[in-house]
């Protein structure tokens, strides 16, 4: 089948199953940096301890030809089991988790709590002068929340990067 050759770069979420062995993440990252592909976000964790398989989720962007190249190059790595472009392979769920620290007193402190409530963020730590909120959702939702916290005393953000999974009963 001929490949789409349009020149528009789009964001793609790619899931990679790999053997959890020494150096495997370096191989994946080295491939992206060595070939000039960009990484917008990257997460990795073991998902099957018995078989020692890890799942890497990479959000990258490129033209259709570049995305095909990225998939082919990843598949070529010896410890890679499977590469799947979740963006094109049907509907998916994407989630990201953020821990957001806000410091302040008085009205701004109350206001941050009120907004957190609207976003269904949980308070996971609190002192007289600060909160740590935990928020899960799409990257856009997290961005919106963080933007709103900025004038209210935002001091620190830690995000996991996107994890994604296809909808429906089938595995990767």
């Amino acid at each position: 089948m001929a490949i789409a050759t349009d020149q528009i770069a789009r964001s793609h979420t790619i899931a990679i199953l790999v053997d959890n062995e020494a150096g495997v993440l370096a191989r994946v990252i080295g491939l992206f940096s060595g070939r000039g592909y960009n990484i917008e976000s990257l997460t990795v964790a073991e998902v099957d301890a018995g078989r020692r398989v890890s799942r890497i989720t990479v959000v990258t962007s490129g033209t259709p030809m570049i995305i095909e190249q990225i998939k082919a190059q990843l598949s070529r790595l010896v410890p890679v089991h499977r590469v799947s472009d979740l963006t094109v392979e049907g509907p998916r769920v994407e989630r990201e988790l953020a821990l957001v620290k806000v410091a302040g007193k008085g009205e701004t402190r109350v206001e941050s709590l009120r907004i957190a409530d609207i976003f269904r963020a949980r308070v996971v730590d609190s002192t007289n002068t600060s909160f740590v909120f935990e928020l899960t959702g799409s990257a856009e939702k997290l961005n919106a929340f963080i933007d709103l916290m900025r004038p209210l005393g935002l001091v620190d953000v830690s995000r996991t990067g996107i994890v994604a999974i296809s909808r429906g009963p089938n595995p990767l």
Binding site: A2, I3, T5, M65, E68, Q69, A72, Q73, S75, R76
Partner: peptide, 15 residues
């Protein structure tokens, strides 16, 4: 034999 060689520099009609 290497899928990454296909459509790398030149888009082909029948890989």
């Amino acid at each position: 034999i290497d899928p990454s060689s296909v459509n790398k520099n030149v888009a082909v009609d029948v890989p």
